[in-house]
């Protein structure tokens, strides 16, 4: 037996309208139906022109982030039954330019992400014949939490600082930088420091903490940023008192 709920979906078709508008659709739901299932129902049965991003529908790919009743959510992990009797308002992620309907332009985030080099940086790679880089469980625990980030950008959507100043490098990029900084196989902390210690790096953050609240993977970007502020501040004091990096 299934009930119905109303989805109010933001539509923006640049060739047709200059501002986003809302269309209402009635969709069936059970207690297992995610908001994404509702969108797929609309796309398959009611209005094939609706566009949105999704892929894995199990909280791994990070592509189905949208505003659900004003809050940034992964729509595959947000259930319609929790919003009964509705209506449920589905909008594109805030703080990003809208391309069409529920799709936002993520170019800014992608450009920021590569700036922090979110990969293992080695001065010299050891030859394959010497085997793998070994790591103890304790060394893994140092960064594991930050490695859970799926680049869904909910934290950018929730961050009021990013909303006011898009130059801010943002929560996920800093958390991912820390994921590699805290990895004992990595040697790129110095490169990342150059980017992160800029005014638009960590210092833009005023510790509002919304990023951590909305993170669907419990990454705690706000904690990563505060921790890195201390690292960067101590480093900057050191370079002030010993400018040659003694």
């Amino acid at each position: 037996m299934s009930d119905h709920i109303t989805l109010q979906i933001a539509r923006y078709r640049p060739e047709q309208e200059s501002e986003p508008t809302f269309n209402e659709y009635e969709v069936p739901y059970t207690k297992e139906s995610a908001v994404l299932d509702g969108l797929n129902y609309v796309k398959d049965r009611l209005d094939g022109t609706l566009v949105y991003r999704w892929s894995c529908r199990m909280g791994i790919c990070g592509s189905c982030g949208m505003s659900v009743n004003g809050e940034p959510k992964l729509t595959c992990a947000t259930f319609l039954a929790d919003y009964a009797p509705g209506p449920v308002r589905v909008e594109p992620l805030r703080n990003f330019p809208i391309i069409r309907d529920l799709i936002v332009d993520i170019g800014d985030f992608m450009r920021k992400l590569v700036r922090v080099k979110p990969w293992i940086v080695r001065e010299v790679d050891k030859p394959l014949s010497e085997g793998e880089y070994r790591q103890t469980p304790e060394q893994l625990d140092e960064y594991k939490q930050f490695s859970m980030c799926i680049n869904c950008m909910l934290c950018y959507s929730a961050c009021p600082i990013y909303g006011l100043d898009p130059k801010f490098i943002g929560p996920a990029a800093i958390a991912l930088a820390q994921r590699y900084n805290l990895d004992n196989r990595d040697e790129g902390a110095g490169d990342r420091m150059e980017v992160l210690s800029e005014y638009d790096g960590i210092w833009g953050c005023t510790f509002v903490g919304e990023c951590t609240k909305v993170c669907p993977k419990h990454v705690d970007p706000a904690g990563a940023i505060q921790r890195y502020k201390l690292t960067a501040a101590l480093e900057s004091m050191k370079s002030f008192f010993a400018p040659r990096g003694a």
Binding site: M193, E194, S197, E198, Y199, W203, K229, L230, A232, A233, E235, S236, M237, S239, F240
Partner: peptide
């Protein structure tokens, strides 16, 4: 090279 700006010092004073 880290570019110098007073933010780290001000943040340390804020934090302390």
């Amino acid at each position: 090279m880290i570019r110098r700006h007073p933010e780290p010092l001000l943040w340390m004073l804020f934090s302390a």
